[in-house]
Computed example of a mutant assay.
Amino acid sequence: MSTEQHVAPAEAQEPELFENPGTEEHRERLGDVDPRYAKANERLIALILAVSALASIGSIVAYVALPLEDLWSVRNSTLFLGLGLGIGMLGIGVAAIHWAKTLMSNVEYVEERHPQRSDDETRAVAADMMKHGVEDSGIGRRPLLKGAALGAVALAPLPYVVPLVANLGGDWNVGAFRHTLWGETPEEYSGRLPDGSLGRRLARDPEDTPIRATDVTNGSVFHVIPHGLNEHEHFYEEKAKAVVLMVRLDPDLLHEPEEKADWSYNGIVAYSKICTHVGCPVALYEQQTHHLLCPCHQSTFDMTDQAKVVFGPAKRPLPQLPIAVDDEGYLVARADFDEPIGPSYWERLQ
């Protein structure tokens, strides 16, 4: 018994090819046929670019004019600076899109792509097409748009550049990082030492209550601020520089050089909490090893040995706060830190 098999011709097995529909018929826009409409679009684009330029200038004015005195003023300055930056860059983008959609050529050009260099005739045709596109965009005939675009683009980077340049330079050693509130001794927040001098009292953070030496037990850890800090008008700025971590260790464990022998009190030592790597708060204390750890990049400091670096990217020990006890038994700072707090930098005096 045999079964006949019918095999379709090869032509019938090939998929049908779609006919190339080509490009859609070009439809002219109102601006292509009505010069008044094109002129209106040109003025609108120039207006958007002008708003962009004004926003960029406004952000610079906000940076210079608005004071940075408290949390609200910082927030307002940041708000207006951000609005200026955003509107400035957004205006350029919106103007570019509207320009392309309403004034530049929207004719579709089709060109076959070749893997090798085209012949000279084809290259000449392509160059002519490029020249035609530039001419068709009208950029040479629209000085208003050229001027507005150049002005907006030139002003847009300034809100980024001006704050950067304004904050460069200066000697940090004699500036903000060199001095903290520990060096200021208003009488209402200070205690009197046996030699008659005043020292800023150490207070708990955030309660701002003075600390007696008898309150600090062996192995205890205190987060410390200068007494009276909560009443300071520049609270956040000063706290960022003056925060201290204080612990009480066995005095026999301390390795103190002779010139710093009186910087601690019965095993109580106090060091800046600002990491000397990039300024993160160092606040993780390990009682068994007496190590202080920075959680950002794992720099580790030995509290028994002048807070020297034992691990991590930090290159300098934490600055020590010299402390003593006043005539009422409260812990006080005998002086400010002996060096600027915070990260290292090229101008720091060693």
Rank of each mutant, 00 (worst) to 15 (best):
S2N: 12
E4A: 10
H6Q: 11
H6S: 09
V7M: 09
A10F: 14
A12D: 15
A12P: 12
E16Y: 13
N20G: 05
P21Q: 04
E24L: 11
R29L: 00
G31A: 10
V33F: 07
L49I: 02
A53V: 08
L54V: 07
I57P: 00
S59Y: 11
S59T: 09
P67T: 00
L71R: 10
G82V: 07
G84Q: 06
G84C: 11
G91I: 01
H98D: 12
W99V: 04
A100E: 14
V107E: 09
R113M: 11
H114V: 07
S118N: 06
D119V: 07
D119Y: 03
R123I: 13
A127T: 07
H132V: 02
H132T: 12
G138S: 01
G140K: 04
P143H: 01
L144C: 03
K146F: 00
A149S: 08
L150D: 00
A152N: 01
G170K: 00
W172L: 11
W172H: 10
V174A: 03
R178M: 07
W182D: 11
E184V: 12
P186V: 02
L193E: 01
P194T: 04
P194N: 03
D195H: 05
R200C: 15
R200E: 11
R200H: 02
R201M: 13
A203G: 05
R204S: 02
A213Y: 12
D215N: 13
D215K: 07
N218M: 14
S220H: 15
V221K: 08
F222S: 13
P226F: 07
H227A: 15
G228L: 12
H234F: 14
E238D: 03
A242Q: 10
L245N: 10
D250S: 09
L253Q: 14
E258F: 04
K260H: 11
A261H: 02
W263D: 14
G267N: 12
A270E: 01
Y271D: 07
K273T: 10
I274V: 10
T276M: 02
V278N: 06
A283T: 03
Y285H: 09
H290I: 06
C294K: 02
C296M: 02
C296F: 04
S299K: 06
D302H: 00
G312S: 09
R316H: 15
R316I: 11
P317K: 00
P322A: 06
L331W: 01
V332H: 07
E347C: 05
R348I: 11
